[in-house]
């Protein structure tokens, strides 16, 4: 399964991968982290829809539960997918900046 097959969960999945790259986290910690670094307030239904997909793809994996809260960590395949997505975003950002500069200079 490719990244784009995540459908409407693609953006959320990207945020989750970004969050887990800094270390394992459980659901609530992920939501808080994502809210802090991106300003996006995820809701539980959306978060777990994306977690289920990422887990199934093998990009994240569950760790043993701690008091009902189960932490997740990013896998090697998840890091590779995340790296690819970051590279794509960087290209988009670069092009965006160039075009903005042209537009502002004209």
């Amino acid at each position: 399964m490719r990244y784009e097959e995540l459908g409407r969960f693609a953006d959320v999945s990207f945020l989750i991968l970004a969050s887990l790259t800094s270390g394992p986290k459980h659901g609530y910690a992920m939501m808080e982290d994502i809210r802090e670094f991106s300003g996006t307030q995820l809701e539980p239904g959306t978060l777990y829809g994306a977690i289920a997909r990422l887990e199934k793809k093998g990009w994240i994996e569950a760790l043993p539960a701690e008091n009902r809260r189960r932490p997740y960590r990013i896998t090697t395949a998840g890091i590779a997918a995340f790296r690819e997505q970051v590279a794509t975003l960087q290209r988009v950002t670069t092009v965006g900046k160039e075009r903005l500069a042209i537009w502002e200079g004209s």
Binding site: H26, G27, Y28, E43, P44, I51, A65, R68, R69, R70
Partner: peptide, 18 residues
Amino acid sequence: YEDEMLALLEQHTVTPAT
């Protein structure tokens, strides 16, 4: 997922959007 979602919901502010 039920247990961990319940644990999360206990910490989360539930709104109509939730």
